[in-house]
């Protein structure tokens, strides 16, 4: 099976949603998936769990407004729901937090939200790549 890898670095709701969509699509057909969340994306996730707003990230008004309306009416799944659904569908979904980004933000590794499976370093993530892996960067 092809394994999907996502390096998620953009700290916007749009990027998180895109990662969630790829994850749920992959896990629906049993493609294993690893998501390495680093830098601004990690800050966005941690801020979201603290109840803070995060940047939207959609550049065009019709997309921004369209997603906003769809979310308000409950027609779309949120990025959290997508990632949770991916994990429900498959045991081979691994979400990693970048250890370096946590350290520079002064974040205690033990206090990570349950969404994360582990703290990892880029060497571990990249070192774990195999020949037929696909890597997306968001």
């Amino acid at each position: 099976m092809v394994r999907i890898n996502i390096i998620l670095k953009t700290g916007t709701a749009a990027a998180l949603h895109q990662a969630g969509m790829i994850a749920v699509g992959a896990s629906s057909v049993d493609h294993p998936i690893r998501i390495f969340i680093m830098d601004d994306a990690l800050a966005a996730v941690l801020r979201h769990y603290k109840g803070e707003e995060i940047p939207n990230g959609y550049e065009f008004e019709e997309v921004r407004n369209g997603f906003h309306k769809a979310e308000e009416s409950g027609k779309t799944m949120t990025w959290e729901e997508l990632l949770e659904s991916a994990k429900d569908l498959s045991e081979e979904v691994e979400i990693m937090a970048c250890g370096l980004a946590l350290d520079v933000m002064g974040y205690n590794h033990e206090e990570l939200p349950e969404l994360f499976d582990k703290v990892s370093g880029v060497a571990d993530f990249v070192g774990g790549l195999e020949d037929d892996d696909i890597v997306f960067t968001l």
Binding site: V24, S28, G74, K75, T76, M77, S85
Partner: peptide, 14 residues
């Protein structure tokens, strides 16, 4: 009905 992609597929899988 009323759900955009991938909602219907997720409901089907469940």
């Amino acid at each position: 009905r009323g759900s955009f992609c991938p909602g219907p597929l997720m409901e089907l899988i469940r």
